[in-house]
C-alpha cells in the first residue's frame, strides 16, 4: 500500500514538473501532447469504468465526449453573439460554469441512452450504443448555426479567476489538477460498495439479482457517471483545441477510446491513462518519422495484443515482479 502511495506521489511530482522538464529538454510541444494525453486518459478511464469494471462494452462514448465539447462551444458562441441558447440560456466563458454544465448535459444524455440501451447486453449493447452515438453525430453535423461539419471555433479558451488560461503551462496544471481529482474520485468509487456491486454484476448478474440487487439501476448509475466523466474530458478538449466539431463525435473516436482502454489494460485504474499515453505518443512519434506511420502503428498494436495478456498494465506488473 505505502509503496503504491510513494509511486503515485512520485508520478504526480514528475507530472507537476512536466512544464519545466519539457522546457529543459527543449521539447515544449511535448507539454501539449501531455495535456491531450491527460484529457484522453480521463475519457478512456470513464469508458473503462463501464467497460472494464461494469462489463458494459459501449461503442458510443464519442457522443458524450462531443457533447461535452459542444456545450463549451455553444456557450462561447452565444456569449460572443450576445444571444440566448434556445432563447433561454445566456452564453458564458467561465470554466467554473462551462465544465459543470458540460458534465450535467452529458450525464443527462447518458441517462437517456442508458435507460434504453441497458435493456440489451453483450454484442447488442455494443451496437445500440453505437446507434445512438451515430444519431447524435448526424444531428450535430446538420446544425447549420453552429458551423455544421466545419465546427465552432472557440476563439478564446474559457477563463478561470486569477489564471491566464492562454499560458500553456497554466492550462496543463489546471488539467493535471482536474485529472488528479478525477482519478482520486474514480478510485474511491471503484473501491466503494457501489464498485463492489458493479464488479459482482459484471461477473454474474443473475446471482446479484437473486441477492436482491436492482441490477438495472446500478448499471444505469454507472453508465451515467461514465458519461459525465467523458463529457468533462470533452469540455476540456474543446478548451484545449479552442474548437469543437463533429469529428469529436465520430464513431472512430469511440473506437480510439476503446483502443486506448484495451491497449492500457481493461478493468485497471491506471491502464486507460497508460493506454492513452502510449497510443498518442506512438501516433505523434511515428507520424513525424514516416508518412507510412499507420503501418507501423498497426503492427505494434498487433504485437501488443498477441504478446501481452491484459494490455500494457499486465506487462508493467509482470516486469515489476507481480504486484
Amino acid at each position: 500500500m505505502t509503496r503504491h502511495r510513494i509511486l503515485g506521489l512520485g508520478l504526480l511530482l514528475v507530472l507537476a514538473l512536466m512544464p519545466v522538464l519539457t522546457d529543459l529538454a527543449g521539447q515544449p510541444a511535448f507539454l501539449s501532447l501531455m495535456t491531450r494525453i491527460l484529457i484522453y486518459g480521463m475519457a478512456a478511464a470513464s469508458l473503462n469504468f463501464v467497460l472494464g469494471f461494469g462489463g458494459m462494452v459501449s461503442f458510443g462514448h464519442a457522443a458524450f465526449f462531443g457533447i461535452g465539447g459542444y456545450v463549451v462551444g455553444f456557450l462561447f458562441f452565444h456569449q460572443t453573439e450576445g444571444t440566448l441558447f434556445l432563447g433561454l440560456i445566456p452564453g458564458t466563458s467561465q470554466l467554473l460554469i462551462t465544465l459543470p454544465a458540460a458534465v450535467l448535459v452529458s450525464g443527462l444524455v447518458a441517462a437517456l441512452i442508458g435507460t434504453l440501451a441497458l435493456r440489451t447486453g453483450g454484442v447488442q449493447f455494443i451496437m445500440i450504443t453505437l446507434a445512438f452515438a451515430q444519431m447524435i453525430f448526424f444531428f450535430f453535423v446538420s446544425l447549420k448555426t453552429y458551423g455544421g461539419e466545419d465546427g465552432i471555433i472557440i476563439r478564446r479558451a474559457n477563463e478561470l479567476p486569477f489564471l491566464n488560461m492562454r499560458d500553456k503551462a497554466t492550462f496543463y496544471w489546471v488539467v493535471l489538477a482536474i485529472t488528479t481529482l478525477f482519478f482520486l474520485g474514480l478510485r474511491r468509487v471503484v473501491n466503494s460498495s457501489f464498485g463492489a456491486v458493479l464488479d459482482g454484476l459484471r461477473q454474474n448478474e443473475r446471482r446479484m439479482a437473486a441477492l436482491g440487487v436492482p441490477a438495472f439501476r446500478y448499471k444505469l448509475y454507472a453508465f451515467v457517471l461514465s458519461g459525465m466523466g467523458t463529457g468533462l474530458a470533452g469540455a476540456l478538449m474543446a478548451n484545449f483545441l479552442r474548437f469543437a466539431s463533429p469529428d469529436m463525435l465520430h464513431w472512430t473516436k469511440s473506437g480510439e477510446l476503446m483502443v486506448m482502454v484495451i491497449l492500457g489494460g481493461v478493468g485497471t485504474l491506471f491502464g486507460p491513462f497508460l493506454g492513452a499515453g502510449a497510443f498518442m505518443v506512438l501516433e505523434s512519434v511515428l507520424s513525424s518519422w514516416s508518412e507510412h506511420w499507420p503501418l507501423a502503428l498497426g503492427l505494434i498494436l498487433l504485437v501488443v495484443v498477441l504478446g501481452t495478456k491484459g494490455g500494457l498494465m499486465a506487462l508493467v506488473s509482470r516486469l515489476g515482479g507481480r504486484k
Binding site: V57, V259, I262, L297, G298, L302, V305
Partner: peptide
C-alpha cells in the same frame, strides 16, 4: 476476450490500408 480481438483487428485495418497505399 472480445476486446482483444477488437484491438487486433483494428491493428489489421491500419496495416492493410497502408499496405495498399504502398
Amino acid at each position: 476476450d472480445h476486446l482483444d480481438q477488437v484491438l487486433a483487428t483494428f491493428g489489421l485495418i491500419l496495416t492493410f490500408n497502408q499496405s495498399i497505399i504502398l
